[in-house]
């Protein structure tokens, strides 16, 4: 199994990441590899906190997060497997626009 290791840029930027789509207007953290959803157990357990901008408790990642995933075998082409991480970073007061981060698994 290959691990998606933590990434310094990722950890610096991501103060808090919503883990699951509890609040419809927020985007849950989602990892895909080669366009396929990674099985849910690869996500670590979240913290459940209430932030200042909402009374609804949110499931969050805070600080450095390690996500593990099985990388599919090479499909025989030149293209290394690609991973895409969708996340939305929030502070206690605001959430930034969701963003997608792409990784070449080579």
């Amino acid at each position: 199994m290959t691990l998606l290791r933590r990434d310094r840029r990722f950890s610096r930027r991501a103060a808090m990441l919503q883990w699951a789509g509890i609040v419809p207007s927020l985007v849950p953290t989602r990892l895909t590899i080669a366009g396929n959803e990674v099985p849910a157990p690869t996500y670590p357990r979240p913290l459940v906190k209430t932030l200042r901008f909402s009374d609804t408790p949110l499931a969050l990642y805070e600080g450095v997060v390690d996500l593990a995933a099985k990388v599919p075998p090479n499909d025989g082409t030149e293209r290394p497997p690609m991973a895409e991480l969708t996340l939305q970073a929030c502070s206690d007061r605001i959430c930034l626009d969701p963003q997608k981060m792409r990784f070449a698994l080579c």
Binding site: P80, M82, R102, C106
Partner: peptide, 11 residues
């Protein structure tokens, strides 16, 4: 030799 060039080009 790690496939990074191909990843950059194809992506």
């Amino acid at each position: 030799g790690e496939g990074l060039g191909a990843a950059l080009i194809l992506d």
